[in-house]
Design a protein around this nucleic acid. Structure first.
Length: 414
DNA sequence: TCTGGGGTCCTAGGACCC
DNA sequence: TCTGGGGTCCTAGGACCC
């Protein structure tokens, strides 16, 4: 018996899930059959493409580009706003099916999972992949690609071959034929900044990278050079990281402001709304944070951040917001602000927390207050309670994504 | 009117301690 | 009198992923 890794990847995930949902609601048109995208709202400056249909792809529309640009390429493009709750449900449904086939499952992102199996031969692995793929299509109404290999990296590369609704293998003896001719850009961990550096070294394909001088790559790209050289040679051995074995490292929320801001009192209001969501998620995860970070993006998209280590770990909204205020005042260059972020890191579990003499005197009362507010918000919606600061203001009193249904995402780490 | 929002890890420099 | 070396923590910024 040998170990086989599967990488399951939902095709055009957000768009497929939206299409399935709409068909269930009685809509006649399948978004997957027309040029369509899931995208934000340009009026609030969130106008980028999150997912595209295959007909949209044929217009050369790309994920991450602006809706403005996409509309120039395809004027009758159908644009749909994202509906994250639906996507979370679709993702969970897929995960529940996959779990039935192996307890060794690693949820890699909202639309990707790794599984491992033992088989005595390749044919058996392909048969099972086919069964899984067909079952998801039949029961959930969307298609997936499945990549199969002897490690996660190769399985992931394989699932990215021809789409949609396909199974591909990329075993070590197939690397030279199937992977080396591909442009180096498609290799996991070769991103925007690395591509031009590799091109300058005369490296254009994954094969070029695989056969490049390792010492020189290490010299120019440090540990990252070694990593991508190994990936180009199919070397990777991390194995399945189960959801239980990994713990969350940080929690953050950020938002692009509908308009640039140049008054600190306006910025502070957004920062408070972001802090409300971050601390609520922090408490929900039963963590305390030791470090608080503010990040600011200018109109020209340049950005900077400022952080501080707290005297003692906390999950309290007021204490964390005080730190945020201090950080903002210290950091802000007084230039117009496009985007603001709040993040907490250096998390510790809150159940075995040792009280220190520096702790806030009313800590217990604060805890009770925080948890009461959290409960009300979970029960009646997040707008049930708001700070008086937000009364009659346009700023939403609590800003940020996904509270309850979260799961770990570890995207640049296999 | 034209670049989102959620993450993780790595690196480099400075502070500080022994 | 005159500059060692190792270790850890903190901070800022950059790179990557989906």
């Amino acid at each position: 018996m040998k170990k086989f890794y599967f990488h399951i990847d939902a095709n055009s995930a957000y768009l497929s899930w939206e299409a399935v949902y709409r068909l269930q609601q009685g809509e006649q048109i399948d978004l997957r059959d027309i040029p369509s995208v899931i995208g934000g709202n340009p009026k609030t400056r969130k106008g980028i493409i999150l997912a595209k249909s295959i007909p949209a792809k044929n217009y050369n529309i790309q994920t991450g580009e602006t809706l403005y640009k996409a509309l120039q390429k395809c004027p009758n493009l159908k644009i749909v706003s994202p509906n994250y709750h639906i996507y979370m449900k679709a993702s969970n449904a897929m995960h529940n099916i996959l779990k039935e086939y192996s307890p060794n499952i690693q949820r890699f992102s909202i639309d990707e999972s790794f599984l491992d199996f033992n088989f005595s031969n390749r044919t058996d692995s392909i048969k099972l992949a086919f069964k899984i793929k067909e079952r998801i299509k039949r029961e959930l109404g969307f298609t997936v690609n499945i990549g199969i290999s002897s490690n996660k990296l190769l399985a992931k590369v394989a699932s990215d071959f021809k789409k949609p609704d396909n199974i591909h293998t990329l075993f070590p003896d197939e690397i030279e034929e199937k992977m080396w001719p591909l442009p180096v850009d498609v290799l996991f961990m070769v991103g925007r900044a690395t591509i031009p550096k590799l091109h300058r070294m005369g490296i254009y394909t994954i094969g070029d990278l695989a056969n490049a001088n390792l010492d020189y790559l290490k010299y120019t790209l440090k540990s990252h050079g070694k990593l991508i050289w190994e990936y180009a040679n199919g070397i990777e051995s991390s194995g399945i990281r189960s959801d239980k074995s990994t713990s969350i490292k940080g929690i953050g929320n950020s938002t692009t402001l509908p308009r640039d801001i140049d008054q600190s009192k306006d910025a502070l209001m957004y920062l408070l709304a972001l802090t409300e969501m971050v601390t609520m998620r922090l408490r929900h995860n039963k963590k305390l944070c030791k470090v608080v970070v503010v990040s600011i993006k200018n109109t020209d998209l340049s950005h900077y951040s400022h952080q501080m280590t707290l005297i003692s770990p906390t999950d309290d909204t007021n204490i964390i917001y005080d730190a945020i205020k201090t950080l903002f005042h210290q950091a802000w260059h007084s230039q117009a602000i496009r985007h603001l972020g709040v993040r907490v890191t250096s998390l510790v579990d809150n159940d075995n927390y040792q009280y220190s003499i520096f702790d806030h005197r009313n800590l217990e009362n604060l805890r009770k207050l925080n948890s009461t507010i959290d409960d009300l918000r979970l029960k009646y919606g997040k707008d049930i309670i708001l700070r008086s600061t937000f009364l009659h203001k346009k700023v939403k009193p609590i800003i940020g994504g996904v509270g309850e249904d979260e799961y770990k995402m570890m995207s640049s780490l296999l």
